[in-house]
Design a protein around this nucleic acid. Sequence first.
DNA 1: GTTTGCGGTGGAGTGCACTCCAACTCCTAC
DNA 2: GTAGGAGTTGGAGTGCACTCCACCGCAAAC
Lengths: 130, 130
Amino acid sequence: MTSATPLPAETLSITEVAERTGLSPDTLRYYEKAGLISPVGRSTSGRRRYAAADMNWIDFLLRLRDTGMSIADMQRFAELRRGGAATTADRLAMLREHRVRLHRRIHGLQVSGRALDDKIDHYERLLEDT
Amino acid sequence: MTSATPLPAETLSITEVAERTGLSPDTLRYYEKAGLISPVGRSTSGRRRYAAADMNWIDFLLRLRDTGMSIADMQRFAELRRGGAATTADRLAMLREHRVRLHRRIHGLQVSGRALDDKIDHYERLLEDT
DNA sequence: GTTTGCGGTGGAGTGCACTCCAACTCCTAC
DNA sequence: GTAGGAGTTGGAGTGCACTCCACCGCAAAC
């Protein structure tokens, strides 16, 4: 008899979140302390319980991180987010700037990738000429 | 009367190399100390004089760095290079592995870039609905 | 009722890649 | 001859993003 789930609904423990995100529990606590993640719900015994909304936000944070955004900039973005709808335009501006930097970075990597290809070709030719 | 250039030929001072590469003089010395750059020629008064071959190597090092290779791996590559022709196959292997990692990284950035695009679209729609 | 295990906190420590500094040495120009 | 400027060395310091640690609390398992 699965009764209607009570209030806690579907929440995850810190180690479960760690497993799903690849972050360590220490890093999750560090991010929260740093204000990247707003204080997450607690169980009666004071343990963190991550809800779906927390997970979505963490996933997005990781996109920002993986595309090279610094902790300082993520803090700024998270703070804007806590400021609510009034900050939408500012957040959009941040994301657009970040996208520009990202595209520049991808382009730079592709250019360097071709230089790397050339170097590899060079070495392959050296090895062919036994 | 520009007489035939003597032995030093076309060499650059450390600040000139810094300007051309974007590295600081401190970083150039640090790289040399770390073995990334093999001891560069010196003037009679003990000052570094970078030759064309040094510049080519530094340019390539920067490609490796900019594509995410760690100092430790660049040290390994530089050491192989000092080992001469016998290490060609090893160096080729390193570069191929590095290229695989680079392509994975570029791909990951492109995927995250699309997620970023979606988020930007989302914010744009929020702002349109005045 | 105590061992086991997960989680909490504050704060110290780590690894990487630089970056800065003090003290000294050379030229070059005045 | 001395002041200025560029460069030398060894070693200390910095900023970032974690990562580790000691010590404590709670709850289920035995």
